[in-house]
Simulated assay, not measured.
Amino acid sequence: MRLAVRGYISQRLPSLQEKFNQLHLNSGEVEDIGDEITKKSDGMFLYARLVLNYLENKIFYKGSEVKLSVNELPKELSDFYRKILTQILVRLDAQSVHRVRSIFCWIAFARRPLKKIEFLSAISFSAGDPDITHLVPTYILDICGALIEERRDNTLAFIHISVKEFLQSSSSGLAIDKKEVIVEHAHQDGRLVSLQNPLLRKELELALWTRSPKGLESGLQTNRLSNHSIPSTSLPPQDGISFMLAAYEESVKFLLSQNDYPGVSTEELESFKSQFRGSAFTCRLSSCPRATLGFESEVLRVDHEMTHLPRLQCDFPGCQNPPFVSVQALRNHVKKYHVAQPARKSIRQVADASQITFENAAEQLVNRANQIRNSGNTSQIDSPRLMSGSIEERTR
């Protein structure tokens, strides 16, 4: 691991070569600096990365200052983070420090990593001002650039999970706390205070139920029944908030289908499509991460939402039928394919058997009558009761 870290440092040092040349550092001295960074990193890529970033951003007058800075750097990551944070905050006034804290809080406590444009939107509206016409500038991220980064998927994150742990500790001097942040936003945003209104609270409760597992299941299964078992790509709004969200999705879909739009440049429209394509097809289960991240199409969204429905598997040995979404569907399947039905007898066959039995009995009676006649006791032949009783006995 130590050799791998040294290789990483060797790849990064050439980017500082111009600065080192102006500070009159020769190749041997640069090599010594690389060795010292490797030693302090002790196999940690993150530490090596922080040191090199530190050297890139720090102003040096002499080559000896570079060597001294590397030698004086703390060995513990937490101490390194504290040194970087101090450099960020020392030049800021109280309002700017508060805003830096807000930046860290949004990155630390967002339900999922925010894309850059989502983050800028969140910062812009976090104060509760509804009359926002422009997003905050992107340079605010440069101030905190030593501790946060933009990933390949355009989301923002700390350079390492240990940064969040450090910022939540009291030793950071800028301790961030999730509960305090929620309370702070609740007091700053007058819209949350208005939830005391019973009508608005009722709308919110209906919206939460609509976007709950039971609400999603009810909507999808209702549409399955009304559309001949084909899942619908849009659920009927159950409340005002859901209706508003549905209208927003329709607006996004419309813009995604446009090649140009009045007052919007081609670059702006394409940027919107790349950033918000998924927001038109979000999962309608509020607890799902895809409730904000979304999908590329309606079909993908519905396929995903179907996975949230309860699934019942047939446990009959050898049955390969896909899982069922309701108990009744499972019962119908079991009754149709796995319950042995008693064989039904043909009415014609029963009648034929009865006819054969009757004919046999009649033949036996005729033979008996002949025997009696031959014996000379003809009184038994004339008894209708005897005849009928004998037939009944033989046909049973």
Rank of each mutant, 00 (worst) to 15 (best):
L206T: 07
S78L: 12
P213G: 02
G34N: 04
R82D: 13
I117N: 09
L200K: 07
S124D: 07
G34E: 09
P130V: 06
I117Q: 15
Q328D: 12
S274M: 15
K178P: 00
N154F: 08
L312V: 01
L255Y: 11
N370Y: 07
Q349C: 02
S287M: 08
V325L: 10
D32M: 11
E296H: 05
L92E: 14
K58S: 10
R284V: 01
G240L: 12
R211C: 03
V163F: 02
A94E: 15
P317V: 09
L16S: 04
K345H: 11
I372Y: 10
D153E: 14
V100S: 03
A280D: 03
I9T: 03
A108I: 06
C314T: 03
E36V: 06
L114F: 05
N71V: 11
Q238N: 05
A207L: 02
L200N: 04
S41G: 01
K115T: 09
R344T: 13
F109I: 08
L216Q: 04
S271D: 15
Q275V: 04
Q364Y: 03
K40T: 01
M244F: 10
K75H: 06
S229T: 03
L92K: 13
L73P: 00
S265A: 07
L77C: 05
P14F: 09
I391E: 07
R49E: 15
G376D: 11
I143D: 04
S78K: 08
S69L: 12
S172C: 04
I159V: 15
S234H: 06
G173K: 08
H185W: 12
D239I: 04
T266R: 13
R91S: 08
Q221D: 01
T282C: 15
T138I: 13
R348I: 13
K39Y: 11
C144G: 02
A340I: 10
G7D: 11
M244C: 10
R301G: 02
T138A: 12
K253D: 05
R6W: 12
D260M: 10
D129C: 04
G215H: 04
K214T: 08
T395C: 15
L204D: 03
P231H: 06
L156R: 02
A353H: 09
G389V: 08
E76C: 02
S286P: 00
Q371T: 07
G263D: 10
R99A: 05
V90A: 10
S379L: 11
F358L: 15
L195H: 08
L68K: 14
R284I: 01
R224D: 08
V299P: 00
F272I: 04
M244D: 10
G173N: 11
A4S: 10
Y139H: 05
R6L: 14
A146V: 03
N321P: 00
Q328Y: 02
R311L: 08
K335R: 12
I117H: 13
K336Y: 02
S379E: 15
P74H: 07
S170I: 11
T133N: 09
S169M: 05
K335T: 03
V264T: 12
P317W: 09
A186Y: 13
L120K: 05
D142Q: 11
